[in-house]
Every structure is written in C-alpha cells, then in structure tokens.
Design a binder for these strands. Sequence first.
DNA 1: TAGATTGTTAATCGATTAACAATC
DNA 2: TAGATTGTTAATCGATTAACAATC
Lengths: 213, 213
Amino acid sequence: MEKNEVSISVIKRLPRYYRFLQSLKENGITRISSKELALRMGLTASQIRHDFNCFGGFGQQGYGYNVPELYKKIGEILCVDKEIKTILIGAGNLGKAVASKLFGQNSGFRLIGIFDKNEAICGNMIKGIPVRHVDKLENFCIDNKPVTAVICIPSNDMKELTDLLVKLGIRSFWNFSNYDIAMAHPEVLVENVHLSDSLMTIGYLTNTTDIER
Amino acid sequence: MEKNEVSISVIKRLPRYYRFLQSLKENGITRISSKELALRMGLTASQIRHDFNCFGGFGQQGYGYNVPELYKKIGEILCVDKEIKTILIGAGNLGKAVASKLFGQNSGFRLIGIFDKNEAICGNMIKGIPVRHVDKLENFCIDNKPVTAVICIPSNDMKELTDLLVKLGIRSFWNFSNYDIAMAHPEVLVENVHLSDSLMTIGYLTNTTDIER
DNA sequence: TAGATTGTTAATCGATTAACAATC
DNA sequence: TAGATTGTTAATCGATTAACAATC
C-alpha cells in the first residue's frame, strides 16, 4: 500500500495528537472518529485521516479509531520509549527548566551529563546529576558517547562549542541559543527554540491586532 | 502601491531578519543585497524581496538594502520599542528564565508583576519585581491593567486562571503550558511554546534519520 | 551609459481540504 | 443489511520560487 510521504509539517503535529490522545485515554474514552477529534483539536477530519494515513491505517471504517491503540502507535512512531543519551550545556534557570522536560516517563531521552562554565555551580546536583565544568566535556563524551546535546547558553561561545560537540559525535541538537547550528553544520539535526523570536511574534500580533478591551 | 498580503509565515520570519540585521550592523556592514542576505540566512533572494515588499519597498534598485535603515524599519514593524504591560504567572525555573527575556532593550514588553501560588517564594525579588501570591492577581489587574500574560505553570489550574485573566482584560498570552488557551478563548491572541512537542520532534528525527557517527 | 539589483507578476510547488468508493 | 466512517485520490488553496521589467 502506497503511503503519503511524511512531511515535516505532519511530524510537527504528531506530539499534539499524542498529548490529546493521552488525555482522552485518561478520561476513559476508548473510541473516537476523525470528525470528533477534529472538532476537539481545531483541525479538519480530512487532515487527521491524511496525517494518520502517512504511517499506515490505524482506524476501522464505520467505527473510527481505538484511542489506546492509536495512542500507543503514535508513541511508537515518536519513539517515546527510546532513551537517547543526552547532555545539557548550561545550568542556569533555562537549563534547569529544560532538564526537567528530559525526565518524566516517555520523554524519549536520558540525561547523562550537565555542563557549565561557571565554576561556582559545578558540583551542584540537578535531578541527581552533578554539574560538571565544560573542561570535562571532551573526556565525558569520549567515555559516554552521548547522541544529543541540549544547548541552554548564550550564543557567544557557541561556535567553538558546537564544532567540538559535532567532532565528538553529537548528531542532534535541541538548541535554545540564537546561534545557527544548522548553517554551520548541515550534517546534524537541529530543533531550534527561539524564545526571543516567539516573544517578538506575540508582540507584533498584540500591537497590530485590534481586540477590544 | 498594492502590497503582498502579510501572512503569518512572513511575520514569523521577521524576528530572524531582525536578529541577522542587528549582527550585520554590529559588524559595521552598511549595505547588503537580497542575494547576499539569502546566502547568509539560508533563504532565497526571491523570498527575502517578497517578504520585505509586504511592508513597502525598503531597498534601492542597483544598490540593495541599507542595513541600519532596514534594521530600524523591521524593528518598527515588530514594535520593539513598545512596552506592553505584562504579567508573569509562575516563578519557577522556567518563569525566571523567561522573565529575563522580557528585559533587555527592545523586547517590546514591560514586566509589571509576577505571581505564583507557592507561598514560600512570595516576596522573593526577580529582576527587581516581587513575587506576589496569585490571590492578589485580580486586584493587581484591576489597578494596573496589564495587556499580556506569560504563562509558566503546569496545565492543571489553567482553565480557571485563563478564564479569570481574560475576564480581567488580558488580550494576549505567551503560553508555555499545554493548556489550549486559543480553543477556550478564540477572542484572544496566543503564542504557544510547547517545549515537550519540540523535544518529541527532535526525538523523532534523531531516531529516524540515519546520520553516520 | 552599463551593470546591478530591486519590486512585482507569473509559474511552480507543496500542503490542506473535499469528495467518494471501500468496507466495517 | 444500512449507517457510519475510514483510506485515498482529486481539487483547491496558499506559499515559495522564478523571471524580468523598472530603475538606481
């Protein structure tokens, strides 16, 4: 059976489907139609069927979709039960907030090391993991072979750091800095979270949209 | 002169243009062509000209774009010099990290109040602003009339909170929770930052993409 | 002037939506 | 069986890219 190609826009919708199905499941709902799901999620039924169909048919004509089964399947597609070895660079407020996302069941990642250049906080424990000085990064990576790096530091030192991390075998980045890793290293995967861009967007919309108060 | 309509995808690119132009300006570059900018940003020259043209012509045939001027114009479009009165709900690690984004020159916002339900941290100062108990939220809003709320708490209490905030006149949200504010209140503006969705996306890509190590 | 580069329209591409036959 | 709803193809819509006349 020929499937629709999986585009990045479909992939970006999967986590939201996953969250929604989880809450349906928690509420004891065992069955849902694309029409009903569309209504609840603010999408079209057509898009939902189209999206799910990229990965093979999960539904049953005349019935709809089985919620726990669909939830499980999407979890498998997203590889939530994997534990990708991950390091965190930057143990400030943002780093600490982000670290907690890497725990919880089914995050898909396992945090194995935390690094910071601030001597004063080295040795501190975050979620049971000690903050190490960035000087230790190279040997740590050689020994432990992390796959993903989470970047929670300003852009200043990013060039040297990223070059090093890529050389040490890191192949994907969850990047909170404004440094353009993908441009410098097209061979690795990068998911950017540009908080300041997001803030500017809501600023623009707030200023330009007329909403009565 | 008839302009291209300003679509959300164009708006979402503006902050990145702004950042890029800022760094060009800081490096003393006063002039750039769409071709050169495209090369540096990984876009097409055509798209850049098309984007800028939505807001009127900023360039000059045969010359290109004046960097400081273009930077200034985009800043104006993004209203970075406005100071939208803003409150922050949730003073944990994420709240503290996000609060710092609201400062710095040209964020477009002015943080006027911070709220948390944890009594233990009420009274603490963050960037010179005291953390207040959420019980004080209603009176504070009546007195100070904030326009935007930044949401850095889990989704549990979000329904009551959002209903209250909308009732109190908040008309835009920078939302870090998974609660779907836009679905509950279609009349307000919402910019979502779904960190767990972003993490799942990079997880999926890392697991499914073959990159040699 | 000649060369360069924009502004702008037309063509292409891809994503979303509509439609409906298949089938539970 | 009849009704419901999927899977899947075709139509539509919108965004990106290409092309080129305008003009600095």
